[in-house]
Amino acid sequence: MVSGQQSEGPAAAATRLTGFEAASRGPSGTLSEVVLTDGHQHFDAVVKRGHAPGATRAEAAGLRWLAAADAVRIPHVHGADDTWLVLDRVTETSPSHAEDFGRNLARLHSAGAPAFGAPPPTGPADAWIGTAPMRNSPRESWPEWYAEHRILPYVRMASEILDTTVFERACARIPSVAGPAEPPARLHGDLWSGNVLWDAGGAILIDPAAHGGHRETDLAMLHLFGCPHLERIVAAYDEVAPLADGYRERIALHQLFPLLVHTVLFGRSYARQATDAARSLG
């Protein structure tokens, strides 16, 4: 971190990172609203302070990688460093254009990734999902990668409140329940409903934990935490990129990852759900 940035406020950070003059519109904190102006035009922005050094730079890399697919709408990144991230502000309205979101999400996934676990091109291997650590370590085989890098690390972190043998047995079952092989998809990676904002033009995605993964994992997270018009979204997705047979039977498999992350972050309230999902694999 550059000396002095620890005490820097969001408006000053926005000016430094964007070159625009910034005026604060809201209280300083993790998220702050500012107005950016170049003297001729002005626009609303959000300034985010990262929870850990480098978190905002990793998030910016993920947002830019998702935006490069030219599929789902992503807020423009105006600037980022290891402490701050400056984005366009979204003016939220009621959810609409659900089918467009489904089709665009399919196109985002189809943009692909070099491997399962591949980070965004300018992103770090050691990233985050929310405030939990998330290691991006590329592998060619999804079942082995998912067990090694998306299940077992979080089981170890929460081993005091989980029966680890249940999850070890589940990991052994993944190759037989994973369904047909799929190419690595370009995932948002933390696709719960709070990270799907809606404005007059439809859905906009924020706060990614972007990486190469299995496309059903993003969809499973929408199912886990709910999303307006979910069935319409999935139906439109399926029109563009048909889901493999047995997709709904695999939802619990793909929900293991977010459930374990939530177990690490929030404790026993999610441990039972994660255990039930693991046991459902047989």
Rank of each mutant, 00 (worst) to 15 (best):
G179T: 09
R169Q: 08
P175Q: 12
V166L: 07
L162E: 12
L162F: 10
S193T: 13
V196T: 00
P175K: 11
R186A: 06
R169N: 07
F167H: 13
V196W: 00
G189N: 11
V177Q: 05
A185F: 02
T165F: 00
T164V: 13
I174H: 14
L197R: 07
H188E: 08
P180G: 14
A170M: 07
S176C: 03
D190A: 14
S176F: 04
H188G: 02
P180C: 02
R186H: 04
D163E: 09
P184F: 00
L162W: 03
A172I: 03
A170N: 06
P184N: 01
A178T: 07
S193Y: 08
A170G: 06
E182C: 04
I174Y: 11
L197G: 01
V166C: 03
V166T: 13
S176Q: 15
G189D: 06
V196F: 00
R173G: 12
V196A: 04
C171F: 07
L162P: 01
D190R: 06
I174L: 11
F167D: 04
F167S: 05
T165V: 11
E182I: 03
G189K: 10
A178Y: 03
N195E: 04
V166P: 02
A181M: 11
A172W: 01
A181D: 15
H188I: 07
T164R: 10
C171D: 09
L191N: 01
